[in-house]
């Protein structure tokens, strides 16, 4: 599950209203949602983000509404993984269920800056900054969550399980 990409860095308490504003909740198509991602926080994000890029944030990323579009739009925009000091619980679940990798890493803010290149491995928690050589260790997610992520999200995971049963 190794990812590498360029860092987009944000602060604490990034809420789902700025990740995906309420006025767009009627938009369901992932490709359209990708263009609206982060609009109220960083208008440049949707234009600049490339496939595989990485969001680095402070505490309590994804707080606020339960709208899973906040995870869907980031995944559709190409984000491979969100690394934060901590997550709000509903966003944490939504990301896993939609197959968007997340990593909880309390030191991430001190080793990565916007524009740096990172290489990360969620299954071991390893975070390596290819730009400045610094490393950090993220918490490793429980095996059943890694399995859901590995399957691409909850729906493909359930389909796989049901096919086996």
């Amino acid at each position: 599950m190794k990812f590498s990409g360029t860092v987009f860095k944000y602060g604490n308490d990034i809420n789902t209203d700025v990740i995906f504003p309420g006025r767009y909740l009627k938009v369901w198509e992932p490709a359209e949602m990708a263009k609206l991602a982060m609009e109220d926080l960083d208008k440049e994000f949707a234009k600049k983000v490339r496939k595989g890029d990485i969001i680095v944030a402070g505490k309590y990323f994804g707080c606020g509404s339960s709208r899973e579009q906040a995870a869907t739009c980031l995944k559709a925009a190409g984000v491979s993984v969100v690394i934060a000091e901590s997550f709000a619980r509903i966003f944490y679940r939504n990301a896993i269920n939609l197959g968007l990798a997340i990593m909880v890493c309390p030191e991430i803010g001190s080793i990565a800056e916007a524009g740096d290149r990172l290489e990360v491995e969620p299954t071991t928690g390893e975070v390596k900054n290819l730009t400045n050589g610094k490393t950090a260790k993220a918490k490793v997610l429980p095996p059943f969550i890694l399995e859901i992520l590995g399957d691409g999200g909850l729906i493909p995971h359930l389909k796989k399980k049901m096919a086996k049963a």
Partner: peptide, 22 residues
């Protein structure tokens, strides 16, 4: 599928918000 689902704890219900896929 709404974050303010915690409201129903006023009735002694364990109530919590989740996403649409879940």
């Amino acid at each position: 599928t709404d974050s303010h689902t915690t409201t129903h704890g006023a009735f002694g219900v364990f109530s919590t918000g989740i996403g649409a896929t879940e």
